[in-house]
Design a protein around this nucleic acid. Structure first.
Length: 930
RNA sequence: GGGCCUGUAGCUCAGUUGGCUAGAGCACACGACUGAUAAUCGUGAGGUCGGUAGUUCGAGCCUACCCAGGCCCA
């Protein structure tokens, strides 16, 4: 008799090798054809909603690894919330406006751009964005992300553009928007503002001058007065842009640095006649040497903080220049006293705002001094350098002039040097309507930050940020839809005008602003409030794209029936504390007095195996497309789940190899479970819990534990804990223990015996639960295995339509864990001793062994209850149990098993040979085959 | 330079309010099996917990400084 045919060996069509890169697209196709996402929505009608609102990626370029982690994390969140009983829709979005696309289109168009209208250029930008949306959409879908890919939201949708204008209108209505001045990079030959991305830094030779700003004397009070009495004094500043001297408003010192009052013999007659110079102590020796002054002494020293408020005179203009403090002051170069022209520099501007200085820019768009400026009116600034230096020299304020080579910003287009020039810009005030305060309150009290330190991070940013500059001098965006009176220049920004424009945008998009005449853009019968004129012109600035995406709660969450506002979660990289979380919060607080989200989750950035950031130049960039090709999207998903996303996220070949090994282990576990269920019909063969063997009930209790732990981890967004506990479960509980023990029973017991059905019942529950629990991560593999599960009435056609498992209370109440923990530790002891026997060539297969246990009384009593099972648990042919305390928790010895090897079950048994019709098998097998 | 964050075996992660010889899985080495087989099982060897100094009876955990790295600013 061929006994091999009488045993129940595993059988399955679920392949061991995944072949992911080939098979994944087939699943994607099926999900799409079957409309799985739509079916999710239908079946979830009436369930509580869980809205994760997608932060729109920029519609430019192919996706990189950072996109992948972001979208996969979102997908895991959405799928897990869906499976835990929510209606969790996912509506992806794209950020479409903005400079990078405009620049790219500009480049692509080249000379053709000459003579093209703004509308034409905008059409090209729209096409360009559309092209990359299609590319990215395919790449995102390839990752296994389920969502409403046919109806995403685009910030360039007409309705979205209309909503953007509408939200802007609300800010105007509340009086939060004002027009102010701010320095921007300015090319005087192109006569245009430049963004940081359009600025190139090249070497340039500039004048380098040291200039005295004489103090108003006598000093009225303070430490300086104590030190110098009523003597004349001067601060010495250094600059490489003499032409900005006419716009000087202040002198900045560092509050913490020490400054010296230097007395020099006044060998150069000056207009101010003073001989006390003030500069940073640390720079005194080098400056004196440079200025050729050897004869000097220090009269006193004073901290920068104590100089604050001292008033100086402009060297040649009737104006004061006040001493202020700023931490941007450095000792790298110069004198530690910084010439401050708020209209011509970023730091200067900031200081200007802080101290309420005038943002003074007496330079026109061609880079020429305005008529405002005495002596130099009409001169081109770079040429005026010379005149300014001469003037300074003439008034005796110039200490030293030389030239310097340094890196200086240039225009990328015309290559000429650029200037900082304050221009009119639109701002949303952080103070009006208490925007800052409200935002801070919401951050601290209403919103959950994951990880918790996200709160401190964004709090610091909101607390310290300046007013929001929302205007850009650009083409590809949503225009700031206000008007100016032609008569008096008064701004016209009434609600009815906004409403009118919004309704036009809804039909034709923001392009109408450029296509239509002012008259058509305004509601009828509009008159200037100030001068009663009825002729207007339109603003040509567009909105900052952060405003676009910042209003997505209004344009998307509030508008779509499948979504709702506020969102339950925003989930992006930690750079978005300054970006989208920030702008969305301000946009919503400013118009609705509430945050657009209840919780914010951030993830870190992808870095290489050494923890270094990825860059083309470092050559350590990992492309998701390559990973998918080599390992499959599933392994990429596993990578996202396995790493702790709160920190930087490392990726390397090593890590991917390791994860694909882990993937194989889990896949094989699924496969093995399936292969032992080939003849199991749950509707007929499933046993009641009470009828199951104890070890099978133990397995269900472990499963119950695992289920609880994993569901909690999903709840807490602790995905890496899910991977680790699931993997550990497969390896420790299942593969090396439970399944290993079960083989004997599954293979050799009668097909429909209670013993075998009991095991299969447990396996069925385990597989069913594992697939459901892991589907949000292993979206492809769990689906693949789901289809191989024994057929059951009412099973969902896709696992993505199923819910998380519902473990039965009785599984947990079995209270078997502690006892089986004891058994496992005794087993471990036995395995160690068996290994020694194996080394000594006493045995090979553990079934060749018989084990003897010497256990102290208490343990002995416990083990006695399992005496018959122990040999199967240890996978040996016999276990002999003695009550004997040998000074150890348990002592184990090994001997060759007695009896003959049973041909059928491979156990060694003294009963082999007894039965004459089955002389080569043991008693147990005789029962099984007869 | 500033704000926020991170640093535990080769890799991915645990490590509760400071309390025994710091854990797991993988990888690795050696071995077993050939009824999960491009699988499976066993045993073993891996760590001055980034560094230094301090607080404490006691520090991976607390404090200071330093080093390395990340994001955001300047």
């Amino acid at each position: 008799m061929n006994y091999k045919e009488t045993i129940n060996l595993p059988l399955t069509e679920f392949p061991m090798r995944a072949n992911l890169n080939q098979k994944e697209p087939e699943f994607l196709k099926e999900w799409e054809e079957k409309g799985i996402y739509k079916k999710q929505r239908e079946m979830s009608q009436g369930r509580p909603k869980y809205v994760l609102h997608d932060g729109p990626p920029y519609a430019n370029g192919r996706i990189h690894i950072g996109h992948s982690i972001n979208k996969i994390l979102k997908d895991i969140v959405v799928k897990s919330r869906q499976m835990s009983g929510f209606d969790a829709p996912y509506v992806p979005g794209w950020d479409c406006h903005g400079l990078p696309i405009e620049l790219q289109v500009d480049k692509d168009l080249g000379a053709k751009k000459q003579g093209m209208s703004k509308v034409d250029i905008r059409k090209h930008c729209r096409e360009y964005a559309g092209k990359f949306i299609d590319i990215q959409r395919d790449e995102f879908k390839r990752l296994g992300i389920l969502g409403d890919w046919d109806n995403p939201y685009l910030t360039m949708d007409y309705a979205y553009e209309a909503a953007t204008a509408r939200e802007l209108g609300k800010f105007f209505e509340k009086g939060s928007v004002y027009k102010g001045r701010k320095p921007v990079h300015w090319c005087s030959s192109c006569q245009t503002a430049l963004a940081e991305a359009e600025v190139e830094y090249n070497e340039k030779t500039s004048p380098s001058i040291y200039v005295k700003f004489s103090g108003q004397w006598p000093v009225v009070s303070g430490r300086l007065k104590d030190l110098i009495g009523e003597r004349q004094f001067a601060f010495v500043i250094w600059t490489t842009t003499p032409w900005t001297i006419p716009a000087n408003m202040a002198i900045a010192v560092h509050p913490d640095y020490e400054y010296s009052i230097i007395e020099v013999s006044d060998h150069r007659p000056t207009a101010t006649g003073h001989s006390l110079l003030i500069l940073a102590t640390e720079l005194v020796p080098s400056c004196m040497e440079k200025w050729g002054i050897s004869d000097y002494k220090t009269l006193g020293k004073i901290k920068g903080e104590e100089l604050k408020g001292i008033v100086c005179k402009h060297p040649f203009i009737e104006r004061n220049s006040v001493v202020v403090t700023g931490i941007h002051v450095t000792l790298d170069a110069g004198t530690g006293c910084v010439h401050t022209a708020p209209g011509h520099g970023e730091d200067d501007y900031r200081i200007g705002l802080e101290y309420g200085l005038e943002i003074y820019t007496p330079v026109d768009k061609a880079g020429k001094f305005t008529s405002d400026v005495p002596f130099f009116a009409g001169e081109y600034v770079f040429k005026a350098n010379k005149s300014v230096i001469e003037k300074l020299s003439e008034v005796g304020a110039l200490i030293k002039e030389e030239s310097i080579q340094h890196s200086y910003p240039h225009c990328w287009r015309c290559k000429g040097p650029i200037i900082f020039r304050a221009t009119e810009q639109w701002f949303i005030s952080m103070e009006r309507n208490d925007l800052r305060k409200k935002a801070i309150d919401a951050i601290s009290t209403e919103i959950r930050w994951i990880p918790h330190w996200g709160k401190d991070r964004i709090l610091g940013m909101i607390t310290n940020r300046p007013d929001w500059c929302i205007s850009r001098q650009r083409t590809w965006g949503v225009p700031i839809t206000v008007f100016y009176c032609k008569g008096c220049g008064e701004i016209f920004s009434e609600k009815r005008a906004f409403d009118h424009v919004v309704s036009l945008f809804e039909k034709g998009g923001a392009d109408v602003w450029y296509e239509k005449d002012v008259k058509e853009l305004l509601p009828p019968d509009v008159k200037c409030k100030k001068c009663d004129a009825s002729e207007f012109e339109k603003e040509m600035d567009i909105l900052d794209v952060w405003f676009d995406s910042g209003v997505s709660h209004a344009a998307v969450l509030e508008k779509r029936n499948d979504l709702q506002s506020p969102a339950d979660l925003y989930l992006e990289g930690s750079d978005q504390h300054r970006g989208w979380f920030h702008s969305s919060l301000l946009a919503s607080m400013g118009t609705r007095d509430r945050a657009p989200y209840k919780a914010v989750l951030t993830h870190g950035f992808v870095v290489d195996g050494e923890g270094k950031k990825m860059s083309k130049s470092a050559g350590n960039v990992v492309a998701p497309q390559e990973v998918i090709k080599k390992y499959g999207a599933e392994v990429l998903r596993l990578w996202v789940a396995a790493e702790d996303y709160r920190d930087d996220i490392r990726i390397s070949e090593n890590i991917l190899v390791q994860l694909s090994e882990a993937y194989k282990k889990i896949r094989n576990t699924f496969r093995y479970l399936l292969s032992n269920l080939y003849d199991f019909d749950p509707s007929k063969d499933m046993l009641q819990y009470k009828d199951m063997l104890e070890i099978d009930r133990w397995a269900l209790q472990r499963l119950h534990n695992l289920t609880t732990r994993i569901e909690k981890s999903y709840d807490d967004f602790e995905f890496h804990a899910i991977y680790h506990s699931a993997h550990a479960f497969c390896v420790n509980d299942l593969s090396s223990f439970y399944l290993d023990i079960l083989k004997d029973r599954l293979y050799t017991a009668k097909k429909d015996s209670v013993e075998r059905r009991s095991a299969q019942t447990a396996l069925y529950h385990i597989l069913d639960s594992l697939l459901r629990l892991l589907a949000p991560i292993f979206s492809f593999t769990c689906e693949e295995a789901w289809r191989q599960m024994p057929k059951v009435e009412g099973r969902e056609e896709s696992i993505h339509l199923a819910l998380f498992p519902k473990p039965k209370e009785e599984w947990k109440s079995g209270d078997l864990l502690e006892g089986w923990e004891k058994i496992r530790s005794v087993r471990e002891e036995a395995l160690k001793v068996l290994e020694i026997a194996r080394k000594e060539k006493m045995i090979g297969n553990s079934l060749e062994a018989e084990v003897t246990l010497y256990a102290p009384e208490e343990l002995y009593k416990f083990l006695k209850g399992y005496e018959e099972q122990l040999k199967y648990i240890f996978i040996v042919s016999g276990v002999i149990l003695y009550s004997e305390d040998r000074g150890k928790p348990v002592e184990v010895t090994v001997a060759r098993a007695q009896g003959q090897k049973c041909e059928r079950c491979w156990n060694y048994e003294v009963s082999v040979g007894i039965n004459s019709s089955h002389p080569t098998v043991c008693n147990r097998c005789v029962q099984a085959v007869s």
